[in-house]
Design a protein around this nucleic acid. Structure first.
Lengths: 151, 151
DNA sequence: CTCATCTCAGGCTGACTGAGATCT
DNA sequence: CAGATCTCAGTCGGCCTGAGATGA
């Protein structure tokens, strides 16, 4: 008896919110494990990627772009600054702000993280064809756009 | 300046793991808010639904079916038992086990939770057509099946 | 005065680990 | 003996709030 895992209840098996959550769990596990090889977490990657693409920015701006909370942003920038991947300096034009800038070491690190992340994506999407992946990304993007617009 | 939210970096915008996570976040918020109206959390719903469909079971079995950890299972059953929605008794045939059984009050509660959950699903999937919803559920199911098989 | 920004000090939940007691 | 089950204690990261200090 006990053939292994046991199916969840039918109600749960077709529940879109639960399926999304389970998929996110698997995805996060893979991503966390990959980033863990470089000793960083998701917040660090998101911040470095955003800085690389948009250039220097205040912590508040970075929070708006990444979705990282103001409180966690402080800790994340602390980490990255301590590791030498970003530089934090007061903005002379608006002294409430810190201007956060990615360093050369940060760019190098980001390049390595990109590869780790890419591998994790492949592992996550492994059971899906290229067309399926596009469809999934499209659907999730629409869901995200819809739910982010409204506050 | 500062037109509102600000887009995340391109790298992040097309990242399947991140899109899944963002969607899961929105879904969970809606579900948590709905269940919160009844004073319960997702674990409580998952457990009641599983008991309703499969009948009485040991905590270990329930953990396998729902994905709830053995440790959290203790607390979840504690809650439900305290509220009178389940009954917990030692299994006479295997005295290591607790047999957990849903009560009449639990069934009634589950019926109300089903409605709350259903409303949350509609809110979550609002931007998608019926066909899109089917596609999404299919893709997520395949991802879940793939990642759960392998341990 | 109002508003934005940064920081600190926390809370809460979900996911998880280790270890011990009990029983098969 | 090994292995399953239940329980307790506690970790960790992500998400979130409140409040204070500073400055636009």
């Amino acid at each position: 008896m006990d053939t292994g895992e046991g199916q969840p209840a039918q109600r749960l098996r077709v529940l879109a919110s639960r399926l999304t959550n389970q998929a996110a769990l698997a995805a996060n596990r893979l991503v966390d494990q990959a980033l863990g090889q470089a000793g960083v977490r998701r917040y660090h990657y998101a911040l470095l990627a955003t800085l690389q693409e948009y250039g220097s920015a205040s912590q508040a701006d970075l929070g708006r772009r990444t979705g990282i909370d103001r409180s966690d942003m402080v800790a994340t920038v602390n980490d990255l600054a301590e590791w030498g991947f970003v530089h934090r300096a007061p903005d002379p034009d608006d002294r409430r702000r810190n201007v956060v800038t990615i360093t050369a070491a940060g760019r190098t690190q980001l390049g390595q993280l990109d590869e780790l992340i890419s591998g994790a994506q492949d592992a996550y999407l492994a059971p899906l064809s290229t067309a399926d992946r596009k469809t999934l990304i499209d659907l999730l993007t629409r869901l995200g756009a819809y739910h982010n617009e409204k506050k």
